[in-house]
Design a protein around this nucleic acid. Structure first.
Lengths: 320, 320
DNA sequence: GGTTATGCTGCTCAAATGAGCGGTCAACAT
DNA sequence: ATGTTGACCGCTCATTTGAGCAGCATAACC
């Protein structure tokens, strides 16, 4: 009963006829009416033969793409989470450096693609964005703004602090950057830092941002760069308060709501409210373990476009 | 400058968008308008993206067929020679028995496909048609008529004479057959044979034929079954008169015109005029060497459908 | 032998589609 | 500044296409 895949439709002559018509229609772009005239058939007959040709598998339409993006995962993830855009690298690398390099390249391509000269682009500090900078070849002459202080650790290249300056140079537009750590020891230090002209000039631009680019971290002491900066005790305390994810110095609970903590007072960077107001928020994340953190950020409305890799994407679909 | 095969159209985001749209359109059958609404685009934009997707190779449409018919050769040969139908078996067999078996199967499928109960089917004598009979599984209850006498040789199965009777049995329709050789030694013998009721009853049907099935032979003493029947001397004499092909006892020159010869008077079978009047003339031929003979028969209007194999088809295209 | 299914064919009409046109915007050269 | 150019976008209108329907033939079944 079920004709699963029987290429021979009715007989050899019918098959040859169907193939000829399919060639004229699909490959040579002839209209059905023209084909009907050529073969002495009604255009309805032609339409039916074409339907049969597709149903029988004689005409095969497939999406073929051999870049480094998994189109299927990208689409499914985008639709499942209601994102505007989603780019899933099909990298199977397991080491963080290679993953960051892949995501950085994809993020760079995305930025080049969507940014115009009228955009104001904000960049948080993250090692993935440092990879992005390395892969960035050209960018419309937009304005580039630093969103957060830096989280340097011993062993990280000193020049990494130059992220915003370098991107602004590549773009050929104005850049607003400053030299400051992301986390200070005292709230008062933050206040005095914000009084500095360099920092203040950057912060003043936050309201004008049209694109923001950040990375997501899980609130997991073995994974986080932040944990190293604040110490395990405070880190664990925040986890008890429900912190699940971290993004540009903002702590989020499992539903993406920003968690106000003592740490918030010592953080140098954009706040959740002003970030959420940015029309296009591009977020990178890698590592299957960050799935819940990413889901939290999306729930909180802090992600419009996601750049990630296959295994994390699959985990996100699993827990969606 | 020349983007030969760059799947990445404008950037990763554009590629994902194009892929999503292509999937909705080509794979899920959504209309362009519906897609435009879903993605917040105009339907023109959708149309352009789909065009780009096809041009860039992201959407690939191919005709895939894994039967034993070469669809491409079939179509090209049909179009080049203006045939109604053409079936080219992709058999690469070199021995005649295997070639005949393949063509016989294809011819049987074709006959089953196109014959209805109202048809009157004429069958000439040929070893390919004997293979056809062996492969024939079912046939509408048509009338079957013998078109020619038989050309038996020592070593050929005696039961081969039963061709028309067997096909009529498979069809479950009326059959008009007779036992007679194709070539007699004297014209007078032909006249007395035609007076026989069995033979006369078959010949009376020739005007009602709707389908005729024959095979083509080259006029080449090393190839022809006829040569064995009439002797090399007369055979060579006819070659000097311009005979190039043979088909159901009819000799044709290089342009397919019937050549009247002394042999014509001694031949038992349908004549060229009445054969040409048959609306559907299915012809089988195998062996690259018969290309010119086949071309002659087509030129003479004595072929509406051709059943052959790849190497002969290629040769026919070469000399077309 | 009549009568009901069944399938195939081509028609109508509304929806979908493609070609071409003018409008808008940005970049660039006067 | 200002005109020019080119690219992009969405509209209109003629054409193409698809869904459903009636006619007709054949097949199947009392």
């Amino acid at each position: 009963m079920s004709a699963t895949r029987s290429p021979l439709i009715g007989g050899p002559a019918a098959t040859v006829l169907a193939a000829s018509i399919a060639r004229r229609y699909y490959l040579e772009g002839a209209t059905k009416s023209a084909i009907a005239d050529e073969f002495g058939l009604s255009r309805f007959k032609v339409a039916r033969l074409l339907e049969q040709a597709r149903a029988s598998g004689l005409v095969r339409i497939e999406l073929h793409y051999d870049g480094d993006i998994d189109l299927d995962l990208s689409t499914r993830l985008r639709d499942r989470y209601g994102l505007r855009r989603c780019l899933v690298s099909d990298s199977t690398a397991t080491d963080d450096v290679a993953l960051r390099a892949g995501l950085g390249r994809t993020a760079a391509d995305l930025l080049s693609e969507i940014v115009t000269a009228t955009d104001v682009v904000g960049l948080a500090w993250s090692r993935t964005l440092l990879s992005m900078r390395s892969a960035l070849r050209s960018l419309a002459p937009c304005t580039v703004v630093q969103l957060t202080g830096a989280l340097s650790r011993p062993g990280v290249d000193e020049s990494s602090i130059e992220l915003v300056r370098d991107v602004a140079r590549i773009a050929g537009g104005a850049g607003y950057w400053f030299y400051a750590p992301m986390i200070l020891s005292e709230p008062s230090s933050v206040r005095s830092l914000l009084a500095q002209s360099e920092v203040a000039r950057a912060f003043e631009r936050f309201g004008a941002l049209t694109v923001a680019m950040l990375s997501i971290g899980a609130w997991d002491p073995t994974q986080s760069t932040v944990a190293a900066a604040i110490g395990e005790a405070e880190y664990a305390e925040l986890a008890r308060l429900g912190v699940c994810a971290e993004m540009g110095g903002i702590q989020l609970d499992v539903d993406g709501r920003p968690v106000r903590t003592p740490l918030s007072e010592r953080n140098v960077g954009i706040d959740a409210e002003r970030l959420r107001a940015v029309p296009e928020i591009i977020v990178t994340a890698y590592g299957r373990a960050k799935a819940r953190a990413v889901r939290a950020a999306i729930r909180g409305g802090l992600v419009t476009s996601l750049v990630t890799h296959a295994s994390l994407a699959e985990e996100l679909l699993r827990i969606a």
